[in-house]
């Protein structure tokens, strides 16, 4: 048990030092990178590590006779949460959302410190001590609070009331419900039954297993399988069409969606929100191939009313590309990100 706790304490100290170092620019802020696409799970793991670390730390300090009062433990943990949310998470979370997390965090901390009568008394004690002001130091502290609190609260409310011009927040539907069918270049496609005509094996048969075996590998870099180079001239079927799709992608789509399909293209910086990131497991990995076909063909303008607001400049690509080209681009996007399209069943 002791060894386990020491390990926990070590993790806690190391983690705090790292965060502090990154905060004050002593350690480069890229030391522990947030990896695109794995961010939520990474953050959860990190916070879990910190909690383990803090538990160990508090145990060690107890054992060494330097126990931190419950009062400061509670405040410290809450402050840690707020700092973590503000400075660690990127892209930054808006204040309103952080305030929500902060409130939930505060409630949790209260539940923790008031779990039993003894803890609650311990927590209250420092506050009561200041109120009673039996020593000189405490008296000074009490007067400081008496003067500072009204000034601070008055100042905050002045700040809050000053007219400000902050960008209004607009939420948007990420994956609006698709229609049952879509008409592209005069032909109607039923989304539930349509298939990508280029997801075929060398014999020309629709073959999801074959294509899934040849997509890029997950993991750092998302590289192609060693024997599945779309630029090999001998390719027939799937990989040949992946290459053709890639050519169309790099002539039309990468300007916004980026060379690595992560929504960081050459022109992406000018748009708000920035274009979709296909490497994120929340985009094309969650969707059927025909959904992408519909979105590409109809663009931002083709979104249904539930999909408001249409903060999308994606053009209806049917105006620029043929049906075959659109299917090939869709094929390429799944190949390059290493995701399998979702199936209807």
């Amino acid at each position: 048990m002791k060894a386990l706790m020491s390990l926990g304490a070590l993790i806690g100290v190391a983690g705090l030092l790292l965060l502090g170092g990154m905060f004050f620019d002593i350690v480069p802020s890229t030391t522990v990178r947030l990896v695109e696409g794995y961010m939520p799970i990474q953050l959860l793991l990190e916070v879990a590590c910190y909690v383990i670390g803090f538990t160990g730390l508090s145990y060690m300090m107890n054992a060494m006779g330097m126990a931190l009062p419950r009062f400061w433990q509670g405040i410290g943990f809450w402050v840690f949460l707020m700092v973590y949310l503000k400075y660690r998470v990127y892209p930054p979370i808006p204040f309103s959302v952080r305030a929500m997390y902060g409130t939930v965090g505060l409630v949790t901390v209260f539940m923790w410190i008031s779990a039993n009568e003894e803890d609650w008394t311990k927590f209250k004690q420092p506050i009561l001590n200041v109120l009673d002001a039996q020593t000189g130091g405490k008296r000074l502290l009490r007067y400081l609070y008496l003067v500072l609190l009204p000034i601070l609260i008055g100042g905050f409310s002045f700040n809050a009331m000053m007219p400000k011009s902050e960008e209004p927040i607009e939420l948007r539907t990420v994956h609006p419900a698709p229609p049952a069918s879509t008409k592209v270049h005069g032909k109607t496609y039923t989304l539930q039954t349509s298939q990508n005509p280029y997801r075929v094996n060398p014999e020309g048969k629709y073959d999801q297993e074959f294509s899934n075996a040849n997509i890029v590998e997950q993991g750092m870099g998302r590289l192609m399988k060693p024997n599945a180079n779309p630029w090999d001239d001998k390719n027939q079927g799937y990989l040949k069409y992946v290459r053709e799709g890639g050519e169309i992608f790099f002539q039309n789509c990468h300007f916004c969606h980026g060379d690595n399909l992560n929504g960081r293209g050459l022109h992406a910086f000018a748009f708000n929100p920035i274009p979709a990131n296909f490497t994120d497991p929340g985009t094309i990995a969650q969707l059927q191939e025909t959904f992408i076909f519909w979105r590409v063909s109809k663009g931002g303008i083709g979104l249904p009313n539930e999909g408001f607001p249409w903060a999308s400049v994606m053009p209806p690509w049917e105006q620029h590309l043929t049906v075959d080209e659109i299917w090939k681009v869709v094929l390429f996007e799944y190949w390059h990100t290493g995701y399998y399209p979702r199936t209807w069943d």
Binding site: G221, R222, N229, P230, G246, E247, F250, Q251
Partner: peptide
């Protein structure tokens, strides 16, 4: 393997800067 996954699209098969994306 890295080149033919990521770079070839702009820099081209022979690295002559003439991949499919180059002309735009």
């Amino acid at each position: 393997r890295v080149y033919f996954t990521k770079c070839v699209w702009c820099h081209g098969v022979d690295g002559a800067g003439d991949g499919p994306g180059a002309d735009r």
